[in-house]
């Protein structure tokens, strides 16, 4: 074996070991790498009231109620379960019904979620308004995200370990 082949073999071995180790570490920690829980996770995991968590999902259609001085109440849903959220503050521009949202805060004893921060999630679709209108007219538009995208983040949340 020449020196060159030796070095190449060593490199291949090193990269394989490194890749394997990384895959193991990521699998082990993947539940900690999740940015937010879905409402179903929240129900299933019995998170204690004083722990700050993030929940994500879609803002349920027709659930947004705006109160006095920028108070707002709405429900976050993942299609199976939903959670009532109350928030006091300025909402991001993309916040609207049917839109993805991440709320950070605490679960109150009554079951409502008291959010201190609201982040809007946007889907991976970029289109001018006319195209969206045309798609809606022809019935090819899926509300809340592209065909698989609507389900993907929520499925990922329901099964965080992959």
């Amino acid at each position: 074996m020449t020196r060159k082949q030796q070095r190449l073999g060593l490199l291949a071995l090193g990269m394989t070991a490194l890749g394997g180790a990384t895959a193991l570490v990521l699998t082990a920690f993947s539940s900690n790498l999740v940015f937010f829980y879905s409402p179903s996770d929240l129900k299933a995991q019995a998170i204690s009231a004083d722990r700050r968590v993030r929940i994500g999902g879609l803002v349920e259609d027709g659930s947004v109620k705006r109160g006095a001085d920028s108070r707002v109440a709405f429900r976050i849903t993942d299609g199976k379960t939903d959670v009532a959220v109350v928030y006091h503050g300025i909402l991001p521009d993309l916040f609207r019904e049917g839109q993805g949202v991440v709320a950070e805060g605490k679960l109150e004893p009554g079951g409502a979620f008291d959010a201190s921060t609201i982040l809007a999630k946007h889907d991976e679709r970029y289109m001018p308004r006319e195209v969206v209108d045309a798609l809606k007219k022809s019935g090819h538009w899926q509300e809340g995200g592209a065909s698989e995208a609507a389900a993907a983040p929520l499925n990922a949340a329901a099964t965080p370990v992959r």
Partner: peptide, 11 residues
């Protein structure tokens, strides 16, 4: 794709 993130998936 692997974890839920605030960042949206690839377009």
């Amino acid at each position: 794709d692997w974890w839920n993130t605030l960042h949206q998936p690839a377009s």
